[in-house]
Write a protein that binds this DNA or RNA. Structure first.
Length: 115
DNA sequence: GCGCTGACGCGAT
DNA sequence: CATCGCGCCAGCG
């Protein structure tokens, strides 16, 4: 019904804050946990829009394990540094993360959101 | 109101 | 593995 979900940003923030120290999540995974499978881009936008400094946004990476920011950019370096501080190991500019064990294609296509 | 853009994802090449 | 291309969706000219 109401597709506006004014608390979307808040939800994303909550999910991100819940990421344990030294661990990471992909944008897509965050979107899923926030109740909107497939909305990875909106997660990115939410993070970019958020002015919350305490938000561990750096624990959110792309599905391929690379930071979503422009390589060598200011924020990019910050992200790598903070991750390193938490013991997250990066290899060739990307974090080793296990790719999601492809669930049923059906579910992927229908992607019902659970509010 | 329309079209471009982007802190994405994934199969195909 | 590294790249490319296309699909998605909401925010913003």
């Amino acid at each position: 019904m109401d597709a506006k979900l004014p608390d979307w940003d808040a939800r994303v923030a909550a999910v991100v804050r819940a990421i344990p120290r030294g661990s990471v999540l992909s944008y897509g995974e965050v979107a899923r946990r926030a109740g909107r499978p497939g909305h990875a881009r909106q997660v990115a936008r939410a993070l970019a829009a958020s002015a919350d400094r305490d938000l561990p946004w750096y624990r959110v990476l792309r599905a391929d394990g690379r930071p979503g920011l422009a390589p060598a950019s200011d924020a990019w370096r910050t992200q790598c540094r903070r991750l390193a501080e938490e013991g997250v190991v990066m290899r060739a500019g990307r974090v080793r993360m296990q790719r999601r064990p492809a669930q049923d294609l059906d579910e992927l296509l229908w992607a019902p959101d659970r509010t």
